[in-house]
Structure formats: structure tokens, C-alpha cells
């Protein structure tokens, strides 16, 4: 087992509201190894995004903290790249220029202009966007935008890649395509990834471990499920695989029995 790469220790956060502080998270403990793919799953409003924003450095934990390679995380930075739910590409820049903005920022001094160009094109190729890299976000489909968003994050060569429901807004077929692309990329680069998802199949298919969160307020980690399926995984072969289906039902049981969402 390799060394702990990213460590969350007793992370909790309170948000001030007009009616007093609201406790969103409490006592979140998680250790993640280099190259591990972690999914965060839970009902909406359970604080998955809050965990991610704390790791990204966009929120500051009220207590506890995050260590990346032994160093405390207290502000956002490109070594923790984020793939946002709604792609968040700059609409006035082409796909290439969007990635370029990130590359220019991260490799300002370490890469020459030619190396940067090559690196941008390499990353766009990785997500199969090299054919449309000079198109602007409003000229490409939702799935393509998300691909560019992933390319932008990959191009930062992050220590950890954070993905906030990256495929949530896409139709099922496009989503499956992107999941396959992501597995392919993961095989090649072996990144450390934390992904938020609502989709049980997606979680089981992609993850090494699934972190299941309890309902808020004061949400925390309920269970952690280790997915012991060999890589590379094939969605068709796994559809009838008893182990796969066992994991799947474990997650479903957690979500719909143990942590049943009470609708208000």
C-alpha cells in the first residue's frame, strides 16, 4: 500500500445564517492514496460538494483540516484541479484557449511556447476534442464542453483531480461515452480523483472506493465501500457480474434503506 496522499482529518464546517450557524459537515475523516479513484455519493444536500470545496480550498473548514502530501490546504490552487458540474468554461475563449489559460498559469516558467502548445493539444486529444479545439463553448455540445473542462483540469497536471458531478447534466449515452473516456485516461495517467456523483452505476464502474455520506445537517461519512474489481472494467461484461451487482445493491441499500431521504 502506498503512502497516504490526501488526508481529511475531523473536517467540519458551519455556515452563518440569519437564524444562527448551520452545521453542514461534522467529523469527516478520509485517507486517500496516490492514484486512487474515490466517489462521493449521497442524497442531494448532504454536503458532498462542501467536502469537495473544502479540499479545493474554496471553503475553509471550521474545524479539522486537509493535508495534501503532508502540507495543509488553505487556499485554492492548480495542484487540486476542479472539473465543475456545469463545465465553467470561459464562453469567450475557444476550447484551446480555455486550456491555454490553465497551462499558461501552471507552466508559466517551466515550459516553452512550443512545449505549451504541444501539451495543450495533447490534453485535448486525450479527451477526443482535437477535432474541435478552436470552437467556442457555444458552438459545441454539452458533452464536448465537459470534455474540454476535463482537459483543462488534466492539463494542470494536478496532484488531485476533483470532479463535481462532472456528467450530471448529460444524457445517458453521452455520459457512458465520457465515463469510458475517463477510465481510459485514468489507465494512462493514474491520477488521484475524487468524484461526486448521484449515479450508483457510475460510482461502482469507476471507483476504487465509494464513500457514502449520511444526510445533513451535520453530515458525515456513513460507510466506505471498497470496489474490488480488476481494471480495466467493461460496462457490458460487468452488467451480469455478480460481484458488480453485489456492490451496486450495497450502495443502493445504503441510500434507500439506511439513509432514506425524508422529503420535506
Amino acid at each position: 500500500m502506498s503512502e497516504v496522499h490526501l488526508e481529511l482529518t475531523n473536517v467540519g464546517i458551519e455556515f452563518p445564517t440569519p437564524t444562527g450557524p448551520f452545521r453542514a459537515l461534522q467529523g469527516v475523516d478520509l485517507k486517500i492514496d496516490q492514484g486512487e479513484f474515490i466517489s462521493l455519493i449521497g442524497h442531494s444536500g448532504c454536503g458532498k460538494s462542501t467536502v469537495m470545496n473544502i479540499v479545493a480550498g474554496l471553503y475553509e473548514a471550521t474545524e479539522g483540516g486537509v493535508l495534501l502530501d503532508g502540507k495543509e490546504v488553505n487556499e485554492p490552487g492548480p495542484e487540486r484541479a476542479v472539473v465543475f458540474q456545469n463545465h465553467s468554461l470561459l464562453p469567450w475563449l475557444s476550447a484551446y484557449e480555455n486550456v491555454e489559460l490553465a497551462v499558461d498559469q501552471v507552466f508559466k516558467k517551466t515550459k516553452s511556447a512550443a512545449e505549451k502548445r504541444e501539451w495543450i493539444e495533447y490534453n485535448l486529444k486525450l479527451v477526443h476534442m482535437d477535432h474541435a479545439m478552436h470552437k467556442r463553448p457555444d458552438e459545441i455540445s454539452g458533452g464536448m464542453k465537459q470534455r474540454v473542462g476535463i482537459a483543462r483540469a488534466l492539463a494542470m497536471q494536478p496532484e488531485v483531480m476533483l470532479m463535481d458531478e462532472p456528467f450530471g447534466a448529460l444524457d445517458a449515452l453521452t455520459r457512458a461515452h465520457l465515463q469510458d473516456s475517463l477510465m481510459e485516461i485514468q489507465k494512462e495517467l493514474n491520477n488521484t480523483v475524487i468524484m461526486i456523483t448521484h449515479d450508483v452505476d457510475e460510482a461502482v464502474l469507476l471507483s476504487d472506493r465509494i464513500v457514502m455520506m449520511t444526510n445533513g445537517p451535520a453530515a458525515t461519512i456513513g460507510e466506505i465501500l471498497k470496489i474490488d474489481l480488476p481494471h480495466p472494467r467493461d460496462r457490458l461484461a460487468l452488467a451480469d457480474d455478480p460481484t458488480y451487482n453485489h456492490y451496486r445493491s450495497e450502495v443502493l441499500r445504503f441510500l434507500y434503506e439506511k439513509q432514506r431521504k425524508v422529503e420535506h
Binding site: A56, L58, P76, G77, P78, V82, L90, L101, A102, V106
Partner: peptide, 24 residues
């Protein structure tokens, strides 16, 4: 807020943030 988050994650300087994100 999405674009501000992008700018923060990229750690853009104040000037680059203004030029690349705010002005357009």
C-alpha cells in the same frame, strides 16, 4: 461564481483575472 471559482482554482493574479475574466 463559477467563473470566479475557475479563477481561484487557477490562482490567477488580480490583473490576469481582470483581463481574462472580468473584462470580457
Amino acid at each position: 461564481q463559477d467563473l470566479k471559482n475557475v479563477s481561484q482554482v487557477l490562482s490567477l493574479s488580480w490583473w490576469t483575472h481582470v483581463r481574462k475574466i472580468v473584462l470580457p
